[in-house]
């Protein structure tokens, strides 16, 4: 369809030679036409004294260079939604827009022209238009063009606010422009022997324990063992590994008297609760310093 529009617009211009247009407009149209039909200018520079030829050559060459640069910019922009359009498409769009904006009497009648095959070819060659099953939108997207430097519609006014890191200290681009809790800087505490129980893979924790099996009974400054941490985070695989393979004490209490089961109940991790309760040595009667059993901690 873009192709049809271009053909129609260029045919109109060809048949309306009596239009009196400013030189700059004519040159711009010429450049877009050449880029759309022949691609980048590869001819050698005409003599400078040939003003008209020289001007045309310059327009073709410079416009081509500029479009190439703009297309490269849009491909390096991180907005994946920006469809990559080809130089030809870009030039056709520019040409059509010039003819439209000139108001020289051209209008496009879709029924009078065009083959779907050409259109499809054009759309395919135009780059990675993702298939939405909505060809009208693909067409429109190509027609409207892409300007990576411009603020998008959503950013212009929309309700979701998208803070710009450069503009406000502490602001980051959030997904969908929805504010989330600002990250808190983690204190650097040096080597944390419990790290693998707090985050990371089960395998990493297994490796740490194989390297130092005594870790399983080490307590941190809150009296917590690796099993406490694992139950806090709700990781049933790690809990199983600690108890079944490394014989972690299931009834160990931290400084507040909480057992791993207290943690599991407080946070409502059903799988961890079920597993811990299935351990034969589990003691359900242990109370924490506030006098609560694990079950009583259930939120």
């Amino acid at each position: 369809m873009l192709h049809d529009r271009f053909q129609s617009a260029s045919a109109f211009m060809a048949s309306n030679k009596k239009l009196s247009l400013p030189t700059a407009t004519k040159l711009a149209l010429y450049a877009d036409y050449k880029l759309a039909t022949e691609g980048l200018c590869t001819q050698s520079r005409p003599s400078l004294i040939e003003f008209e030829k020289s001007a045309k050559w310059k327009a073709w060459k410079e416009t081509g260079d500029r479009y190439t640069q703009e297309l490269a910019q849009s491909s390096s922009s991180d907005d994946d939604d920006n469809a990559q359009i080809s130089l030809t498409t870009k030039a056709m769009i520019a040409y059509i827009q010039r003819v439209e904006e000139g108001n020289w009497g051209w209008s496009f009648n879709p029924s009078a022209s065009g083959s779907a095959a050409i259109e499809n070819h054009l759309m395919n060659s135009a780059g990675n238009f993702s298939s939405t099953g909505d060809e009208d939108l693909d067409e429109l997207e190509a027609y409207l063009g892409v300007d990576p430097n411009e603020v998008s519609a959503e950013e212009l006014l929309a309700r979701p606010y998208v803070p710009n890191k450069d503009q406000i200290e502490g602001a980051t681009m959030t997904a969908a422009g929805i504010s989330t809790m600002a990250p808190v800087e983690d204190e650097i505490t040096g080597d944390d022997v419990f790290e693998t129980s707090k985050s990371g893979s089960t395998e990493a924790m297994r490796a740490a324990l194989d390297a130092n099996p005594d870790l399983v009974s080490v307590k941190d400054d809150m009296g917590m063992t690796m099993l406490h941490w694992v139950c806090d985070r709700g990781n049933v695989d790690k809990a199983t590994l600690l108890i079944a393979k490394y014989h972690a004490d299931v009834n160990v209490q931290d400084v507040d008297g909480s057992t791993p089961l207290h943690y599991a109940y407080l946070l409502g991790w059903p799988q961890v609760i079920a597993y811990l309760r299935s351990v034969p040595s589990i003691d359900l009667t242990i109370k924490d310093s506030s006098g609560m059993t694990a079950e009583e901690c259930q939120g």
Partner: peptide, 11 residues
């Protein structure tokens, strides 16, 4: 005056 590109009317 005839140089197009940047000085021409742009879409």
């Amino acid at each position: 005056g005839a140089a197009a590109g940047s000085s021409g009317k742009e879409p």
